[in-house]
Design a protein around this nucleic acid. Structure first.
Length: 656
DNA sequence: AGCACGCCGACT
DNA sequence: GTCGGCGTGCTC
C-alpha cells in the first residue's frame, strides 16, 4: 500500500510513501502521520491512499513511521476547503492544510463529554417588527437551500439581538454556531453577554493568541460535534465544525476580516460563503456599515438583505454633527470648539472619546497656517518627515519613495510654514492634561492593549462604565463601541488617511464616521465633531443625513468609474531582490505572464523602506471575474529566480 | 521551513 | 591552520 503525504512546510506539493503492513488499516486520508522527510522525522498528513505506486521513477520510497490520529481531526470538508483556499488566494498547500489542523503530533483530540447541559436565558423584551420579520425570514431560509443574508441597519435597531435569538434556537437544537467579531477587544466585550445567555460551558471564545490547552479543548469539542456557540475572531472560521448550523459575521465591513500578514491569506467573507454552503448552514452578515463587496453581492442577489429601520425603545436620537477646522487658537490638536465641548462634557461628568486617525503617518508634515499636509508631487500621498544620519532632515513618500526637502510651499495658502507633527495618542493626552489637569484621561490603542496591565483594558472598561473623562484612541477604539457610554466623540485629523495609497480609504473612513454617529444616536444630546483641514476631501452630506447606503452607493459609483473592486479583482505581486537588474527582469517576466489574463496593470511601484539593501516593488493587476482564478493560479505558480522572491496577494487590502 | 553542504573571511 | 558566515539546493 502507498500513500501521499503533505508536510507542514511551505511546499506546494505532496510526497509518496510506502505504508508498512502493520499500519495499513490505520492509514486514511485526513489522518496525521510521522515520516522521514529529508534528514528528519517530521509530521505530515495523508491526502490519499492507493494500492499502486504513482511515484515518479527514480525515487526510492521511504516508509511511513507512525500514524498519529485514530480518526481525521477535521471533517470531510477538509480537502475541498484546502482546494478552495488554494484557488482563491494561492499559497503552498502544506501551509494551507496545516492552518486547518494543528501540526504538533502531541496535539490530540480530547474525548467528547457524554452529556451537555443547555439552558438558554433569553431576555424578555418586545421585539420590533423588523426583528420579528428577520427572525421569521431567516428561519424560513434555513429550512430550504443555502441562502446568505445581510442584516443591515443603524446601531440600536436590534440586529445583534436577532442573531443571538437565532443562535439560541440552533443551540437548543444541539447545533453548532459560529459568531465572528473583528478583533480580540470586540470578542472580550461580547463574551460575557454570550455566556450569560447560553451558559459559560456552551460558549467558546476563540482567537489566535490563546493558550494551547484551551485551543486543544475547544478544537476537540468543535471537532467532536459538541453543541456550542463559538465567539471567534477571523481564525474561528477555520475550525473543524461537524454540525455547523449558523454562522454570523458581526461588523462585516471591518477590514480585520482579511488575513494578509501570515499565510494562508484569506478573506472571512468569501471563506464562510464557501463553508456555510458546504455545511448547509445559515450565514448572516451583520453590519451597520457593510463592505462595498457585500453590497454588490446583495445587488447581484447572491445575498439577501433584511433592513432594520426601527430603533429599539429609548435609543432613537439624532446626534449633532459639526465640522470644524483643526487649527485651534489654544492648541495644536484641538479646535477651540472642541475644547469648549470637552469642558462642557467634563462639567456634566460625561465621557468623551477622541479618535486620532493616525495610520502609519506619525510624522506627517503639515501647514501651521491652514492645516494642510505636505504631499508627494509624484503620487499625491502624504509625506513623512524622516531624519537619518546619511540624508539628514527631509520628507519621504512612503508610497513611491520620492523624497523632498523640508522647504515646502503649502498647496492651499502658499505659505512656507510647515511643521512636523509627531502625532499620536500620547501627545494628545499630554496636551489634554494641560487644559484639564484634574480630568481622568485614558489611552486606547494597540500599544496600550499589548500588555495586560496597560491602560488599554481600563479604557475598554471605562468606555462601558463611563468611569473616565476623556479617552483618546485610534481607529481601534471606534470598533469597540458596543455598549459604550459616551456622549461626545471627535475625530481629530479627519481626512489624513484619505490621500493614502489605499483606494478603500474613503470607505473605511466613512464606516468609522457612521459607527460613531450610530453609537451617539443611542444617547440624548450626542455630539460628533470632525476636525478637518480639507472639508472637501470627503462628502459629509450622507453622514449628516445618517444614510450609509447612500454614501455606499456614491462610493460604488466611483469604484465603477475608476474600475476598482468590487467591479474588478486585484492581484498584487510584491517582488524583492537585492540587485536592481534582477528585480527589473523578474518584474518584466511577471508582467508577461499575466498580460493575457489582465485588463490593466498598475505599477511597478517602489516600496520605500529606510534601512534596506533589498529592492522592493509591487505590481497590481486588474482583471474580471472570468479570468480571476486563472490569474491567481498563474501568479501563484510563478517561480522566481534564486536571487529574488515574490509574494502574491489576491484581492489585497494592504498597499505600500 | 529546516537542514546540510560548501566555499570564503578573521581569529586561536 | 580552523571556526563560522550565509548562499544554494533538496526533501518521496
Amino acid at each position: 500500500m502507498y500513500c501521499k503525504v503533505v508536510f507542514d512546510v511551505p511546499l506546494d506539493r505532496d510526497f509518496d510513501y510506502a505504508v508498512p503492513a502493520e499500519l495499513e488499516n490505520k492509514i486514511m486520508p485526513g489522518v496525521r502521520v510521522t515520516a522521514p522527510f529529508g534528514r528528519v522525522l517530521t509530521g505530515g498528513m495523508v491526502t490519499s491512499v492507493s494500492e499502486i505506486c504513482t511515484a515518479p521513477k527514480g525515487v526510492t520510497l521511504k516508509e511511513i513511521a507512525s500514524v498519529v490520529d485514530k480518526r481525521p481531526l477535521f471533517g470531510s470538508d477538509l480537502f475541498p476547503l484546502m482546494r478552495f483556499m488554494k484557488a482563491q488566494w494561492g499559497g503552498p498547500i502544506g501551509q494551507i492544510l496545516f492552518s486547518l489542523v494543528p501540526p504538533q503530533p502531541y496535539f490530540k483530540l480530547d474525548n467528547a463529554p457524554t452529556s451537555v447541559h443547555i439552558d438558554i436565558k433569553t431576555p424578555s423584551m418586545r421585539l420590533t417588527p423588523c426583528q420579528e420579520t428577520a427572525l421569521q425570514t431567516v428561519r424560513a431560509f434555513a429550512a430550504y437551500e443555502f441562502h446568505p443574508v445581510l442584516l443591515n441597519g443603524p446601531s440600536y435597531t436590534g440586529k445583534t439581538e436577532t442573531v443571538l435569538r437565532l443562535a439560541g434556537e440552533v443551540l437548543a437544537g444541539y447545533g453548532q454556531v459560529l459568531i465572528t467579531v473583528p478583533d480580540i477587544a470586540a470578542a472580550r466585550q461580547f463574551i460575557s453577554e454570550a455566556e450569560e445567555r447560553f451558559g459559560a460551558d456552551n460558549v467558546f471564545c476563540w482567537h489566535s493568541r490563546m493558550l494551547l490547552s484551551k485551543k486543544k479543548k475547544y478544537f476537540s469539542a468543535v471537532s467532536n460535534g459538541l453543541p456550542c456557540v463559538v465567539i471567534a475572531t477571523r481564525s474561528g472560521a477555520l475550525l473543524p465544525f461537524k454540525n455547523l448550523r449558523l454562522a454570523a459575521v458581526l461588523d462585516e465591513g471591518d477590514d480585520n476580516y482579511k488575513q494578509e500578514e501570515n499565510k494562508p491569506y484569506y478573506h472571512l467573507r468569501e471563506l464562510l460563503m464557501f463553508r456555510a454552503k458546504m455545511h448547509g448552514a445559515v450565514l448572516l452578515f451583520v453590519s451597520a456599515t457593510p463592505s462595498l463587496e457585500l453590497l454588490q453581492k446583495v445587488h447581484r442577489q447572491e445575498v439577501a438583505q433584511l433592513s432594520f429601520t426601527q430603533a429599539v425603545p429609548g435609543h432613537a436620537f439624532t446626534p449633532q454633527i459639526k465640522l470644524t477646522d483643526k487649527k485651534g487658537e489654544k492648541s495644536r490638536f484641538l479646535s477651540d470648539f472642541l475644547l469648549a465641548q470637552l469642558t462642557e462634557n467634563l462639567q456634566r461628568k460625561e465621557t468623551s472619546l477622541l479618535i486620532l486617525n493616525r495610520r502609519g503617518y506619525s510624522n506627517a508634515y503639515y501647514c501651521l497656517n491652514c492645516g494642510a499636509y505636505a504631499k508627494c508631487k509624484k503620487c499625491g500621498a502624504i509625506l513623512a518627515r524622516e531624519n537619518t544620519p546619511e540624508h539628514g532632515d527631509r520628507l519621504v513618500c512612503k508610497k513611491c519613495g520620492h523624497t523632498e526637502t523640508l522647504q515646502q510651499e503649502c498647496p492651499h495658502c502658499h505659505n512656507l510654514i510647515f511643521k512636523s507633527r509627531g502625532g499620536g495618542t500620547q501627545k494628545v493626552v499630554t496636551e489634554l492634561a494641560k487644559f484639564f489637569p484634574k480630568a481622568h484621561l485614558l489611552r486606547l490603542d494597540s500599544d496600550t492593549l499589548k500588555t495586560k496591565a496597560g491602560q488599554g483594558f481600563e479604557a475598554l472598561n471605562a468606555l462601558k462604565s463611563g468611569r473616565a473623562d476623556i479617552i483618546v484612541g485610534t481607529r481601534l477604539a471606534s470598533g469597540a463601541l458596543r455598549g459604550a457610554k459616551i456622549t461626545l466623540a471627535a475625530v481629530l485629523d479627519a481626512e489624513l488617511e484619505l490621500d493614502g495609497p489605499d483606494f478603500r480609504a474613503s470607505e473605511k473612513y466613512g464606516q468609522m464616521l457612521f459607527a460613531l454617529r450610530g453609537h451617539l444616536s443611542g444617547v440624548s444630546d450626542g455630539r460628533l465633531i470632525i476636525q478637518a483641514a480639507d472639508k472637501e476631501a470627503y462628502d459629509y452630506e450622507h453622514l449628516f443625513a445618517g444614510d450609509y447606503n447612500a454614501a455606499a452607493q456614491s462610493e460604488l459609483a466611483l469604484r465603477e468609474s475608476f474600475a476598482y473592486p468590487p467591479y474588478v479583482h486585484l492581484a498584487k505581486m510584491l517582488i524583492k531582490a537585492k540587485d536592481a537588474d534582477v528585480l527589473a527582469a523578474e518584474t518584466a517576466r511577471i508582467k508577461r505572464l499575466a498580460a493575457p489574463l489582465v485588463c490593466q496593470t498598475l505599477g511597478p511601484v517602489w516600496c520605500a523602506k529606510k534601512t534596506d539593501v533589498l529592492k522592493k516593488q509591487y505590481l497590481l493587476f486588474k482583471t474580471d471575474e472570468a479570468r480571476w482564478l486563472e490569474l491567481v493560479a498563474a501568479l501563484d505558480s510563478f517561480v522566481p529566480v534564486k536571487k529574488a522572491s515574490v509574494k502574491l496577494s489576491a484581492d489585497p487590502y494592504d498597499f505600500y
